[in-house]
Amino acid sequence: MYGRKKLVIEPAWCKGCGICAAFCPKQVLEIRKEKVVLRDEEQCISCGLCELRCPDYAIYLVNEEE
């Protein structure tokens, strides 16, 4: 699955709780000004754990071709 999916962030829905950033296995997410940002897209392995635990559906994976 590596590299085939892309991470999308919906800042308007993010409440900055920090769950995604804390449990990201590659530590590529961080909270800046109460919103999540993808710090290093190259290092993201598209595992989807952020999407799985985001209570606000503000971060998710989409297929690259879309």
Binding site: K15, C17, G18, L52, R53, C54, P55, D56, Y57
Partner: peptide, 8 residues
């Protein structure tokens, strides 16, 4: 609220 588990 931010971080509420209900959304999950």
């Amino acid at each position: 609220c931010p971080g509420c588990g209900n959304g999950v």
